[in-house]
Design a binder for these strands. Structure first.
Length: 238
DNA sequence: TAATGATCATCA
DNA sequence: TGATGATCATTA
């Protein structure tokens, strides 16, 4: 399957949101094999020399091609059909090169929140994964789009994430947020999510008092997303 | 500041 | 060399 078969892209931008799951998947499939350089030209979007100062650029580009509700709120990218979009950088074996950001961790106002009602679960309930060649040695414009995968949490995955989430949220709620490191959590963990090391947000201190601390985000470890991408990966280079 | 989109860069 | 900790752009 190393023959690159391209599909004509008849899109005019901006696109309407896809009316259903099939429409979204059809669009996503049509992008397979294109390079980021090609997509940037058709979308009339300037391509940066690299991602150092444009870390979310690929995600924004793909949002255009799939008709995601641009600059959305705290919702899934395709809220009307219940789907979140994630681009994920992969190597030639379709293995993830980076962890996957999910959402900012709520450090206050967590009374009554459970895994079932959590924002993490909402975001991950159904995800359209789009693998992209991600090695920094490949010029950005030459990186190719891989085969997309529409995924839902299965029972095993949900148990794994729920377990991690409950452990991490306990630390947050019980005032141990400043003890949290990326070592906590087997599949899901917390890491800084901020503009810089000086950013502060409200949280609960060790005596239950209000404090200011570094904002954290939930991320999926690579070993978790690797398992997801292994599905249906038999025939494809990416 | 917080939310969206993530990857960079350092060090064990 | 990979994971952790740090950071970049943009919008509201």
């Amino acid at each position: 399957m190393n023959t690159k078969i391209k599909n004509f892209i008849p899109y005019t931008f901006p696109l309407d949101p896809p009316k259903d799951e099939n429409a979204l998947l059809h669009r996503a499939n049509s992008l397979f094999g294109y390079t980021l350089g090609e997509l940037s030209i058709y979308a009339k979007l300037e391509i940066p020399p690299n991602l150092k100062r444009n870390k979310g650029w690929i995600g924004m580009l793909l949002e255009r091609y799939l008709g995601a509700s641009a600059k959305s709120k705290s919702e899934q990218d395709f809220a009307s059909i219940g789907i979140e979009l994630k681009t994920i950088p992969v190597d030639i074996s379709r293995r993830p090169l980076e962890t996957t950001f999910i959402c900012v961790a709520p450090l206050t106002g967590n009374s009554g929140v459970t895994w079932e009602t959590s924002y993490v679960r909402y975001k991950l309930s159904r995800v359209l994964w789009i693998p992209i060649e991600g090695h920094r040695t490949i010029p950005l414009a030459m990186r190719r789009i891989g085969v997309p995968l529409l995924w839902s949490l299965n029972a095993k995955e949900e148990l794994q994430l729920k377990s991690d989430w409950e452990e991490l949220m306990d630390l947050i709620v019980l005032g141990k947020v400043e003890n949290i490191t990326a070592h906590h959590g087997d599949m899901l963990h917390l890491r800084p999510k901020a503009s810089n090391g000086k950013a502060l947000t409200a949280a609960i201190g060790k005596f239950g008092q209000p404090i200011l601390t570094m904002p954290l985000g939930f991320y999926l470890r690579k070993k978790f997303t690797a398992k997801i991408l292994e599905r249906y990966s038999i025939y494809y280079l990416l």
